[in-house]
């Protein structure tokens, strides 16, 4: 399978605090991953694990502190301009009501995309193209024409957002928590769209979520992130079917399972993001049920175990 996007040791460091007591926080720590043609790749983890920062670097909204990102073998900062890059890569965001300016009509984003990328010459042809993409997500131009974001339901607007992203025929779509603000009864219709995009249009999707249930449902491969590191990465069946890293297990256990007969009542330790980020050794050691003596001393190195990438001392031996 062709790799279309690759990150090589990408890190992002933020400086926090005032000028005198500055703390350097490694939000993303040497992340290397590959996204293949026509696959759905999930980046999963709790909030503050660096998944959104990684996505912003892939999109070029944020520059990596170190490391490089390649798109089809070409460094992304070598792209001629922002437009040339966004022709290839598009994005969908978490809150559809924030995706579009509440003071502007939703359709204007569609027409701007068409004309800015010179996809069609006149309004009529543009409208036909927009209609085609809206049909692909189960809407029609009629549903969108002349309306402001406040006149849509969340689910409709999220579909519209995906349709807009598809206008340029991108090879890669980055979707940052695309369903967490969408109602439960409409959520699967959005998730199913990503499957359709992959299967019918050959689009690759980077799906960012904290919900492993939809991740399992929709993705081919998955990377679990924790406080800036990828702690486990591989095929979704292997990673979620037989989790190796204790954090993956914890995330899986935490899914509120829709079955009243199987309640998760085991008590658990919760720690704040900042103290974990500044931890030495393995960042998960503070709440790891399988913690050993070495874990708080040394950061674990990554190893491959049966085709799955794991970053844990338990598997390093």
């Amino acid at each position: 399978m062709t790799v279309i996007l690759e990150t090589k040791g990408v890190s992002k460091v933020f400086s926090l605090g005032s000028w005198l007591s500055r703390v350097h926080l490694v939000a993303v720590d040497r992340v290397s991953l590959q996204i293949r043609q026509a696959e759905i790749f999930t980046l999963a983890g709790e909030s503050g694990c660096g998944k959104t920062t990684t996505a912003r670097m892939i999109l070029g909204f944020e520059l990596p502190t170190t490391g490089e990102i390649f798109y089809r073998g070409k460094r992304i900062d070598e792209f001629r301009d922002r437009k040339a890059w966004f022709q290839e890569v598009q994005a969908v965001f978490q809150n559809p009501f924030e995706t579009f300016n509440p003071l502007r009509k939703v359709e204007s984003y569609f027409f701007e995309t068409v004309f800015n990328y010179h996809l069609r010459k006149d309004v009529k042809a543009a409208q036909a193209l927009i209609e085609e993409k809206l049909q692909a997500v189960g809407l029609s131009f009629q549903d969108v024409a002349g309306k402001y974001p406040a006149e849509f339901s969340g689910g409709q607007l999220q579909r519209a957002s995906i349709a807009r992203a598809l206008l340029t025929n991108p090879s890669l779509l980055v979707a940052d928590e695309p369903v967490s603000m969408v109602d439960a009864s409409l959520r699967m219709s959005i998730v199913n769209l990503f499957r359709t995009l992959r299967d019918s249009f050959g689009v690759s999707v980077v799906y960012i979520t904290h919900d492993l249930a939809t991740a399992y449902y929709v993705s081919d491969r998955i990377a679990i992130m924790f406080r800036g590191n990828i702690v486990e990465m591989g095929g979704v069946e292997e990673v979620l079917g037989a989790p190796k890293h204790p954090y993956t297990k914890l995330l899986l256990e935490s899914i509120p399972e829709p079955d009243p007969e199987r309640r998760q009542e085991k008590a658990m330790v919760f720690l704040e993001e900042r103290e974990e980020y500044l931890r030495r050794g393995c960042k998960f050691a503070g709440r790891c049920p399988e913690k050993e003596e070495i874990c708080s001393r040394e950061a674990p190195q990554e190893v491959m175990v049966g085709g799955v990438f794991v970053r844990c001392h338990k598997h390093a031996r």
Binding site: T99, N101, R104, E112, Y117
Partner: peptide, 26 residues
Amino acid sequence: EREFTQTSLLSGNSTLSLVSKEYVPF
């Protein structure tokens, strides 16, 4: 910092039209 800024950039708008279309109304 709002997401529609990114949507506007993804829609291929230049900085000038981003500012005039998205920010001026506010």
